[in-house]
Write a protein that binds this DNA or RNA. Structure first.
Length: 270
DNA sequence: CACAACGTGGGG
DNA sequence: CCCCACGTTGTG
């Protein structure tokens, strides 16, 4: 398929070769396994992906300048973290997974709802958007399969388990892509997060060779700005930060809307 | 060990 | 806020 998004990039000709060794696949195996929140839904939900994505992936240097101040504030549905955490601190998503493992959850969206997600499945987010789960499940499937091979991937949470998870089953419960130690649980807490591998930047395959990061790669040790994972751009612990349980994309449901809105907002009032 | 990239702090 | 630089982590 033509990953349209592709990442053709701001790239100009000079970028064809990209840097020294940017592999065709920017994602390492481990990275591919890393789970995380939104990007996929992000695409799916984007009303007019073609247009939107294009502008995203082809930010001319000039655009970049203009765009940056515009979306400085990653506003998004501020409430989802709360929504997904039960009073006990157990992520609902996690709970869902547990239920699933216990056989209480079936693959049908309806059942999923009944199993408990329903309690939270339909509620307006801060922006007044109703985030029904079912519709999303329905909507996702037709899309997801296409994206899976693209991103190598996950959605292990809801049930759409990836191959990575298939065999071991519950393995997805543990943050894939993160070793137990690196979950930061204890020591340091300064572990490196990983690229989501799903967002537009992550899916780019080439460095622009023009941004400051590219130009200063040797000393800056930074990935090309256009390839900088959207997720990593957010501050850990910041609003909507998916601190843990990355295996669950469920939240994509409302999260998605938030993003979609955010984006339209920023493009409107930019 | 080499390399890519994340985290962080300082400067402008 | 952005850029730069460095330390550090993670992977091959």
């Amino acid at each position: 398929m033509s990953t349209a998004v592709d990442i053709a990039g701001p790239s100009s000709p000079d970028q064809a070769h990209s840097s020294s060794k940017i592999p065709n696949e920017p994602l390492r195996p481990s990275l591919k396994r890393s789970n995380h929140p939104y990007s996929l839904s992000h695409y799916i939900s984007t009303p007019s992906p073609a247009v939107d994505v294009k502008s995203l992936i082809q930010p001319s240097p000039a655009q970049e300048r203009a765009a940056q101040p515009a979306h400085t504030k990653p506003r998004r549905a501020p409430s989802w973290p709360d929504m997904w955490e039960s009073p006990s601190g157990l992520h609902l998503a996690h709970a869902a997974e547990l239920l699933m493992r216990a056989g209480l959850l079936a693959l049908t969206p309806a059942t999923t709802e009944q199993a408990g997600l329903g309690a939270q499945s339909s509620q307006p987010d801060s922006s007044g958007c109703v985030t029904d789960f079912q519709p999303y499940l329905g909507a996702w499937f037709p899309f997801s399969p296409t994206l899976f091979p693209l991103t190598g991937f996950q959605m292990s949470g809801g049930h759409w388990r990836s191959a990575a998870m298939g065999a071991e089953g519950g393995e997805g419960l543990v943050a894939e892509g993160y070793s137990p130690g690196s979950l930061g649980g204890g020591s340091g807490g300064r572990r490196k997060r990983k690229r989501c591998g799903e967002c537009v930047p992550c899916r780019r395959q080439t460095n622009c060779e023009q941004c400051s990061s590219c130009r200063n790669r040797k000393r800056g040790h930074q990935i090309c700005k256009y390839r900088k994972c959207e997720e990593l751009k957010r501050k850990p612990g910041g609003p909507g930060f998916d601190s843990r349980v990355p295996g669950f994309d469920l939240r994509g449901s409302d999260f998605t809307l938030g993003l979609a809105q955010e984006r339209s907002n920023s493009s409107l009032d930019g």
